[in-house]
Write a protein that binds this DNA or RNA. Structure first.
Length: 574
RNA sequence: GGUCCCGUGGUGAAGUCUGGAGUUCACGCCGGCCUGUCAAGCCGGAGGUCGCGGGUUCAAGUCCCGUCGGGACCGCCA
């Protein structure tokens, strides 16, 4: 139907007769003898000069045949890739008339209510931004797949109808028609299948896998999302990081034409200490500063005996942040679990702070020195348990200092040595698994499993980019004795383990190789590479925060006879 | 489950704090004029349940209560 794509018509084609197809992006009519039609397809826009009486409206679908020619002197359009030429002497075929679109099909739609964009997503997708994002996503996808294949990974598909397991995220359930009352679950990840592929001798598995979790949606979370999922046998942590890292850097290079530097590493403890987050954004400073030792003998009650006292310095913020905002920061700190927030403004006149009078000269000068505070800086201090102090200041750090996601540079970082257990279950009093219960403990800490579980590190690691968690993985336990000890710490005895994980662990007895793996969140990776701060912008048909699709109106009520067939009955609303 | 913000012709906004006629601006749409424009220009026109329901008031887009929808965040996401 066509000889050229609109965006590809150029000076090389001058004199040629071409046929292009596309949508009317804009038209400019100059009476009965002259009109300009900007025709758009996925490659861009080209100006066509048509007779004035052709009935052509916005978004009509046209086939245009004409002759490419240089534009007359002084009429070239620098803002258009094809702006040096135009298609003249056009004959126009209207392939489909179109109603006026509900919103402008150009950059102005960036300001349009997202519900309206999603209701008419097929129109939204015509826009350059959406086309660019979809293509970037496809390029990242292709690069990841190519990288994995070249590294010897085998692409294996795993089922979408899987057994329900009580662990982890809430699952979507699918009724089993042939067995009323029984259900499949949609996989929250291919976790158990990929580990069993290792038992099955696949050695190196990968999949660009769809995962489904029935948890509340966020800017970086959808019910359905994609992961580059992988698992490897006979490997240690370095082998996994190397494989994942080169795939991700290959993809980043494919997306932006520039290969990021090697990915640096930081331990979980250092990330918490310095950035107050297990997903540190390394693009900016404002690091947390250790102050605990300054107050070993303090007379200030709020600081006395605190496990950790830390501070951050917000350069030049003393004048900008008023009392009102400081109160809000204090509220925020309390919401996050801190007992309070101490602020200090360092000015030419000295120190302004509600607690200055409780602190000694040495303490004040110590704070100022450690935080390297200059006149005009605002310092925020928290004294609490170590974890709380770190997390609260880490959140305030990003609240106050974080650049927009599209602002470079890209700072990839591995966060390693996550704790094996995090926190304590309120009911059982037992520690809770940090990653999942099959995660390998750090070899140096194995003896602490029984004596000091909360200080056991694990061979679990995250990949972080500009403060977003891109993915996580671990080396898995493959020996039954070690697995038994970890289960014991979690309060799971042999009977319980067999009941809950038997289908998964029994195969290991037939010969599980040492193995480990990783999963990269594809939507997040693509969003950041595309400069979007919301993964919906890189998903063709995303759902709203309440899980609805304004285009199809899913989810919908189901007819009673269909439910009957599945052996289901809907309970009346309570 | 919770906190905060938003909802006004097809689209984006102003109007809401401090109640007084559906008022205004830009884009789009319809009609007319126009032979070199380019997010064309000029002239004219149409288009509204101010998300929905209730309340206060002589009077509600505006104040109060509820509800629905959207967004950001907390919880949740082993």
């Amino acid at each position: 139907m066509r000889t050229h794509l609109c965006g590809h018509v150029g000076s090389d084609d001058i004199g040629a007769t071409v046929t292009v197809c596309g949508w009317v992006a804009r038209r400019r009519e100059h009476g009965e003898h002259l009109a300009f039609v900007d025709l758009r397809d996925n490659s861009g826009v080209v100006q066509c000069v048509v007779d004035g009486d052709v009935d052509v409206r916005s978004e009509y679908v046209l086939q245009i045949t004409g002759t490419v020619r240089q534009r007359p002197e002084g009429t070239t359009n620098e803002n258009l890739a094809t702006g040096a030429v135009e298609i003249g002497d056009c004959s126009v075929t209207v392939l489909r008339r179109a109603d006026p679109p509900p919103f402008p099909v150009d950059a102005r739609a960036d300001e349009v209510d997202e519900t309206i964009r999603l209701r008419h997503r097929y129109i939204d997708l015509r826009r350059e931004r959406m086309q660019r994002n979809l293509r970037l996503r496809a390029a990242v996808n292709a690069a990841l797949r190519s990288s994995m294949v070249s590294q010897g990974f085998v692409e294996v598909e795993t089922p979408m109808l899987v057994p329900s397991t009580p662990e982890g995220a809430r699952e979507f359930l699918v009724p089993a028609r042939r067995e009323p009352g029984s259900f499949y679950a949609l996989p929250q990840s291919p976790q158990l299948f990929k580990q069993l592929l290792m038992v099955g001798g696949v050695d190196r598995y990968f999949q660009i896998a769809r995962c489904l979790r029935d948890e509340d949606l966020r800017a970086d979370r959808q019910y359905e999302f994609m992961q580059l999922d992988l698992e490897m046998s006979f490997v240690n942590q370095d082998d996994v990081l190397e494989a994942v890292g080169s795939a991700v850097l290959d993809a980043a290079e494919a997306a932006n034409g520039e290969r990021p530097p090697e990915i640096e590493r930081i331990t979980w403890r250092e990330a918490m200490d310095r950035y107050g987050s297990d997903k540190p954004d390394l693009r900016f400073g404002m690091e947390l500063v250790e102050l605990t030792d300054l107050f070993a003998a303090t007379g200030f009650g709020a600081f006395a005996g605190a496990e950790a006292i830390k501070g951050i310095s917000v350069a030049g913020a003393a004048a900008d942040i008023g009392r009102n905002q400081l109160d809000r920061l204090t509220d925020r700190a309390k919401q996050l679990g801190a007992k309070g927030l101490v602020w200090m403004k360092f000015t030419d006149d000295g120190i302004e702070s509600p607690v200055a009078k409780f602190l000694s000269e040495d303490e004040l000068s110590g704070i100022r020195g450690r935080l390297d505070a200059r006149s005009g800086d605002l310092c925020l201090l928290v004294a609490d348990e170590w974890m709380t102090t770190c997390e609260v200041l880490g959140t305030l750090r990003t609240d106050l200092g974080r650049p927009p996601v599209h602002q470079g540079p890209y700072r990839y970082v591995w966060v390693v040595e996550f704790p094996l257990f995090v926190g304590v279950d309120g009911q059982s009093g037992r520690p809770k698994p940090g990653h999942h219960p099959f995660t390998m403990p750090h070899p140096d800490d194995v003896d602490l499993i029984e004596t000091d579980p909360l200080n056991v590190r694990s061979i679990a690691y995250d990949l972080v980019l500009n403060g977003w968690e891109l993915g996580s993985g671990s080396i898995r336990i493959h020996e039954p004795e070690l697995q038994r000890r970890v289960f014991a710490a979690l309060g799971i005895d042999d009977t319980e383990a067999a009941r809950r994980f038997g289908f998964f662990l029994k195969p290991f007895d037939y010969g599980a190789p040492p193995h480990g793996g990783f999963a990269v969140g594809l939507d997040r990776l693509v969003a950041i590479l595309a400069g979007e701060d919301n993964i919906r912008e890189v998903i063709a048909y995303p759902k709203t925060q309440s899980g609805a699709d304004p285009m199809t109106d899913a989810p919908l009520a189901i007819a009673p006879d269909v439910l009957e067939d599945l052996g289901l009955r809907v309970a009346p609303p309570s």
